[in-house]
Design a protein around this nucleic acid. Structure first.
Lengths: 347, 347
DNA sequence: TTGTAGGCGTTATCAC
DNA sequence: GTGATAACGCCTACAA
């Protein structure tokens, strides 16, 4: 079992120097002569030396690793967030360990344990749908390990969150649907324990009120927003005696499932009979016909901002905050699915 | 700086035992009395002890970590492969470090270096489009660190690969297009240095020959298969004096870009004027209208198989193989984009 | 500018 | 069954 077995001691023996000098040279310490540095680096290369970061980390009590817990890696929003996180982390010399909770509480707890055991220096999380208790996060706070939430946050935990303004964005989407002449706007909501869904719901409700529309609880369908939920939801809504003329879904997945169902199994058409808007701007939103009006919530940018913030906290350059909320800009993307008259789009 | 500071020594002091006993107990060694084990575990819990895996790994000369290098995390195929890898790895006690090469050679080399420095016990890779040299992989082979390629493999490297049968699959897709009555079938190919694209191209060509169709090099458009490449490619093909009546694209992204272009900027329609088939069964393939005929190449399953194989090699349960190729089943998904008569689909 | 010595938290190998 | 000791590879006071 020979695993990158060349150590600084081997280099030391080779040059009849001490391993501490080698260590210093390799770390570009000013305390070693340029000439020796060169010799050392030369020999290091010759022998094929590769540093053992585990050993270094153990010694320095760091791990240069940050942990990420997301519900699903393969959801576009999360994979692009991870992409952004990765980008920032590697550029600052941090590795990233990624776990997925599958939106299950138990898995999230297990993930947190794993990350803790690996002595990550910080945690980035978007919490699982099932999560209603937060002790597994508290352990990090207690140990002084920085945490930053992104998108799905947990206000109960004393940590910073990177989010978009869900309330206002939802308000604007709803207002847009109203301005298109819709009266009865339905809403697909997610689990109420997640703030983002609560906020979107509240924004939707407020817009209805402000524009003098009736808020009808029967038009709100709460689910986990999966494909099957979208189908079930739209079936239900269309079967109502007084069916809605528009739908605002809290994610694209359910919105698209509903649109597909409408076009394949009903006589209705989008947007003429029912306008649809989603949330998150997934790639499919621009592929489906008619194009889905949605909210661009750049996962990559949120990931980058969250990672940057986390690393600043790790380095102590920013105080670990208590419940600070960083709001990232979101943008409504209006496409054909919500524009009643087939006119030019407002970009 | 207090980071999970409770160590086995603290537990030892607490119980007036030696740390070695604690270590044994926590690892369920049979060499420690049941009763003491219980006491130790009890105290460990009380003190909030969390093992430091870094220290354990340094001592045991392992890392319980596997490295993954993929071109893009946010591509559906790769994110679902990662999901599968993660699943298997965590169930066997391994962590996963993920890097993305952005399809660039330099980044891939840097990723390999990082993973090496972190003493990963094995590597899973799908190589970058730009990669034509493989020394950065050889270092792992030389050090006896198992590698497994998936999808985009490098036959030059002595490692096992998990792939689908690209040649035959491409052959079948092309045959399907021919059977639908098409004569001039165009092909979007990827960079020739990647085997998967070479194989798909060869399968395409062979099918043309076997079915007595002329192979016209002018109908082959080689690119990196990005959205803009799909647009450029279809523009070019449709401008030919003798335009193709079908298109077989080596990925879905370019196929969908082409379809969108056709419907938005030309008089042609899919599949009547030009049939289209893609590759990989991305989520968008089932969203676009008409549905895109493509190849299901389960990323998740490939990831699982590759990870399982890698871990077996790490554990020494399987010999590190030399160029063995594991072929995973793929399945053609026929949708409307390739069926000339709007009849029932052949499933 | 370089060397010495000790330790990060574990586990493995001896003893007893 | 349990304890003492050394070592994994590296870093860092401190000394020279």
């Amino acid at each position: 079992m020979k695993k990158g077995r060349v150590t600084i001691h081997d280099i030391a023996k080779h040059l009849k120097l001490d391993s501490s000098t080698i260590s210093r040279a390799l770390n570009d310490s000013p305390r070693v002569k340029e000439k020796t540095k060169e010799r050392i680096k030369q020999v290091a290369k010759e022998l094929g030396y590769k540093p053992n970061v585990m050993a270094a980390n153990l010694r320095t009590q760091t791990s240069k690793t940050i942990g990420v817990i997301v519900p699903w890696i393969s959801r576009y929003f999360f994979s692009s967030a991870i992409s952004g996180i990765e980008e920032v982390a590697y550029s600052k010399g941090y590795n990233v360990i990624i776990c997925q909770s599958h939106d299950e509480y138990d898995r999230e707890v297990a993930n947190a344990y794993t990350l803790f055991a690996n002595r990550v220096e910080g945690i980035l999380t978007s919490v699982a749908m099932d999560t209603v208790k937060y002790e597994h996060f508290e352990q990090f706070i207690e140990e002084g390990i920085p945490m930053v939430f992104f998108d799905r946050h947990a206000p109960e935990v004393k940590a910073c969150s990177v989010v978009i303004d869900d309330f206002n964005t939802a308000y604007k989407v709803t207002a847009h649907l109203i301005k298109q002449g819709n009266d009865r706007i339905a809403h697909f909501s997610g689990p109420g324990n997640l703030n983002i869904y609560k906020d979107r719901f509240n924004g939707y409700k407020k817009a209805l009120e402000d524009y003098g529309k009736v808020f009808d609880p029967a038009l709100v369908f709460e689910s986990r927003l999966l494909i099957e939920d979208g189908i079930e939801g739209i079936k239900h809504l269309l079967s109502l005696p007084n069916r809605p003329d528009a739908l605002f879904s809290s994610n694209d997945l359910a919105a698209i499932a509903a649109m597909k169902y409408i076009s394949q199994h009903t006589e209705f058409s989008v947007p003429e009979d029912i306008s649809v808007a989603g949330f998150s701007n997934s790639p499919s939103a621009s592929i489906i016909e008619p194009g889905l009006t949605t909210v661009d919530q750049s996962g990559e940018e949120m990931g980058k901002i969250a990672a940057k913030r986390l690393i600043d906290e790790i380095k102590g350059e920013i105080d670990k905050c208590t419940n600070e909320i960083i709001t990232v800009n979101s943008k409504i993307i209006v496409r054909e699915s919500s524009v009643k008259k087939v006119a030019k789009l407002v970009k």
